[in-house]
Simulated scan of single mutants.
Amino acid sequence: MSRTGEIVLGVISAVFTIIAIIGVSFLVVSGSAAFQDEAINAEIQQEILNDPSLTGQDAEMVVQFLDVLPGMFSTFGWGFVVVLVISLVLNIVGIVAVMKNRKPKLAGVMFILAGLFAGIISLTSILLYIAAIMCFVRKAPAQLTDQDEYYKSV
């Protein structure tokens, strides 16, 4: 029995995950660089301190938060990249397991886990969920026995 559909869905979702890893990595690197630029930080802090709707204490709290923001942005960004890499590894394990119809149940479990790590509701995870359902539901056609051949000819 051919498992081409599951393999194709797995490969497409792996490509989407690789694109997401590259995109998020680029955002983290460029975002961290932008947060560390002193000219941008000084301008933002000046605008916050000049805002008439904020009291002095509120403005100081926002400025202190802006000092912590680059570290948080970098930490959460790289954490998201690690989660996407885990999703990619699980996806590749699922693709290898489903090739030549070796272990479709294992592949289905790997596809579901990869979908959860890729984002619960994203295009990548939806493709992985469909591949997992196909792994669980599709069965090999039944082989006819000699007795079945006898009854079929009668």
Rank of each mutant, 00 (worst) to 15 (best):
I112P: 00
A118V: 02
G77P: 02
S25Y: 08
R102I: 13
F80H: 03
S122W: 05
W78Q: 02
V8I: 15
I112G: 00
E47I: 10
D67L: 08
T145S: 13
I21Q: 04
A118F: 03
Q36G: 15
V81C: 05
G94R: 07
R3T: 10
E38L: 09
L88S: 02
E60K: 12
D37V: 03
T75G: 09
L9A: 08
L88G: 03
I95H: 01
Q36D: 15
A142T: 12
A114N: 01
K103T: 12
I12A: 13
V8R: 02
L69M: 14
F117A: 11
I48M: 09
I19E: 05
Y129L: 02
L49D: 08
V81G: 05
P52W: 06
Q64A: 13
G115M: 06
I92H: 02
I86K: 00
G108H: 06
E60N: 13
V24C: 08
F73Q: 02
F73L: 08
K103V: 07
L9W: 02
I21R: 09
Q36T: 11
I22H: 10
S13D: 11
A39W: 00
A34G: 09
V63Y: 01
P70E: 03
V89F: 00
G79M: 07
P104Q: 10
F16L: 15
F26D: 11
V68W: 14
E6C: 13
V62R: 10
V137Q: 07
V96Q: 00
K139Q: 07
N50Q: 15
A118L: 03
V137P: 08
L123K: 04
A132S: 13
I133Y: 15
F117K: 02
V96I: 12
G23E: 12
K139Y: 01
